[in-house]
């Protein structure tokens, strides 16, 4: 009875960690490795089936051979590299210092409450990134300003609609429509030397970069199913972006 109870707690903890890693933007291989490290500290072996929405995990006690299986549904994804970094560090510390179950649980609860960057900092940083993209595509500084403003407004809309719990692709569509409408004004009034560059780069903050890179690194690791799912999610996001841009271009009759 005692071992079963312990195994249940271990399974809960490992599922919590893997779901945190998965929604924070880790590739499948990283989730596997971190889980194995924590399981080995707790004298268990773990076997898992990881997908984008559900994780199935079996833990086996190395000494008694008893096992326990549990399924967990994942919350919606929100990329957070600080969590990846902290969990990775915690796993190494746990191995070096031989942490107990409660030590690991305390550490995980502590790092779940990490603060993110303030909203205004994110808005300004991403708008600068949009301006940076515009520079890479050969815009002048007036175009950079347009790209900055349209990225800012687009991200603002994305954050606001995210709070309203719409479908994520609708959020992306609305953000893309907002950003490209503002940038289209630049093309319409022919501002700067390369107004098209500002239009092209105003929606790039929505590009699902992490999903697409993780998709191919999963495929390289032979996690084909997860790789395909991530790729499909990425393509859906790109389609939603393109639809927003397309409608903005129709409104302003741009070719």
């Amino acid at each position: 009875m005692d071992t079963t109870n312990r195994l249940k707690q271990v399974a809960d903890l490992l599922l919590e960690i893997s779901s945190l890693l998965m929604v924070s933007g880790a590739n499948t291989n990283r989730v596997d490795l971190n889980i194995d490290r924590f399981a080995s500290v707790l004298n268990c072996e773990s076997f898992s089936l990881i997908s984008q929405k559900t994780i199935i995990l079996t833990v086996v006690d190395i000494k008694t051979g008893e096992n326990y299986t549990k399924v967990k549904n994942l919350p919606s994804h929100k990329i957070d590299f600080t969590i990846l970094s902290l969990i990775s560090k915690a796993s190494w510390n746990a191995i070096e210092e031989g942490w107990s179950l409660s030590n690991i649980r305390d550490e995980i609860n502590r790092l779940k409450n990490q603060k993110r960057y303030p909203r205004i900092v994110v808005l300004i940083a991403v708008s600068f990134a949009g301006a940076g993209f515009c520079k890479i595509f050969g815009g002048d500084y007036l175009n950079l300003l347009i790209a900055f403003v349209s990225t800012f407004c687009g991200l603002l809309i994305l954050q606001e609609t995210h709070k309203k719990l719409f479908n994520v692709y609708i959020n992306v569509f609305l953000a893309s429509l907002t950003a490209s409408t503002i940038a289209s004004l630049g093309v319409y009034f022919n501002l700067g030397t390369q107004p098209e560059a500002a239009l092209a780069t105003s929606i790039l903050f929505l590009v699902p970069g992490v999903a697409l890179i993780n998709s191919f690194s999963d495929l390289l690791d032979k996690n084909v199913l997860n790789g395909m799912v991530r790729f499909a999610n990425g393509v859906m996001t790109v389609l939603a972006m393109a639809l927003g841009l397309f409608i903005a271009m129709l409104i302003f009759e741009l070719k």
Partner: peptide, 14 residues
């Protein structure tokens, strides 16, 4: 500007 774009996305990814 590429470096600035990288940092911007880094902050978005926390």
């Amino acid at each position: 500007w590429a470096g600035i774009a990288a940092v911007g996305f880094g902050i978005l990814f926390n």
